[in-house]
Design a protein around this nucleic acid. Structure first.
Length: 235
RNA sequence: CUUUUUACCAAUC
């Protein structure tokens, strides 16, 4: 079974979900990891509906999801903005006792945030005993997505005060928040601190946030200069 | 052997 499972995730990692699924169907006996590998594979390849369908099929076959399955199922709902299904899965998470799992908690934050339920996302965050960088990043990105620039920055500052070191994903979140909320000088300041204080090399995503920030503010000349002068190849 | 967070644009809701 382990060999078959490894093949499923191997195919998934190279983006070949047709063969991953073929292997899954052909194997005689499956365990929870077989299902998780398939569902995670769909998720990683952007096939969210297939991920969710597989999550449901698994239940129909009488298999109980574990923390990984739930994290993936909730994440699929997040990407699909499937709030009703997401809430249902949240209920079964509670019933099955996986509500304390960080991976599950973090995916719930994202799910509620992507469904526009930012207050609920914050509640889930607050309910987690020991949040990690992913929890912070998830909620910050959630605020950004929903246009709450000030809150995103406040959360970022809370994070720093708790001694958590931001990473590149954190900055994608805060910079995107600044762009959506029109916080131009804040955004530029954060971008500067990212490289100078936190010594994080900007990715194309960070430049995109700044170009977006400047462009939305009507500062097209500076936006253009940012594109032409950026250290990496623009996409 | 499997898990959660990651920008812009367009489309959809």
């Amino acid at each position: 079974i382990v060999t078959w499972n490894t093949m499923i995730s191997g195919y998934a990692q190279v983006g070949d979900m047709d063969n991953a699924f073929k292997i899954f169907e052909e194997m005689g006996e499956r365990n929870i990891v077989s299902w998780n590998s398939l569902i995670a594979g769909f998720l990683q390849n952007g096939l969210y509906l297939d991920a969710l369908k597989s999550f449901v099929s698994m239940g129909h076959e009488g298999k109980r999801p574990d923390h990984s399955t739930f994290a993936c199922g909730v994440s699929a709902c997040a990407h699909l903005a499937a709030l009703q299904v997401g809430k249902q899965i949240h209920l079964s998470v509670i019933k099955s006792g996986y509500v304390k799992d960080l991976f599950v908690g973090n995916s719930l934050i994202t799910m509620y945030a992507k469904c526009g339920r930012i207050r609920k996302a914050k509640l889930v965050f607050n309910d987690i005993d020991e949040v990690d960088i992913i929890s912070w990043n998830s909620l910050i990105a959630g605020y950004a997505l929903n246009g709450y620039g000030k809150e995103a920055i406040e959360l970022f500052e809370d994070m720093l005060m708790k001694g958590v070191a931001p990473d590149q994903v954190t900055f994608i979140g805060v910079l995107s928040a600044c762009s959506h909320a029109g916080l131009v000088s804040q955004g530029l300041k954060l971008f500067k601190s990212m490289t100078e204080v936190y010594t994080i090399e900007p990715l194309v995503e960070h430049y995109a946030c700044i170009v977006d920030l400047l462009s939305r503010a009507g500062r097209l000349k500076e936006a253009f200069e940012m594109v032409t002068e950026m250290k990496i190849k623009p996409n």
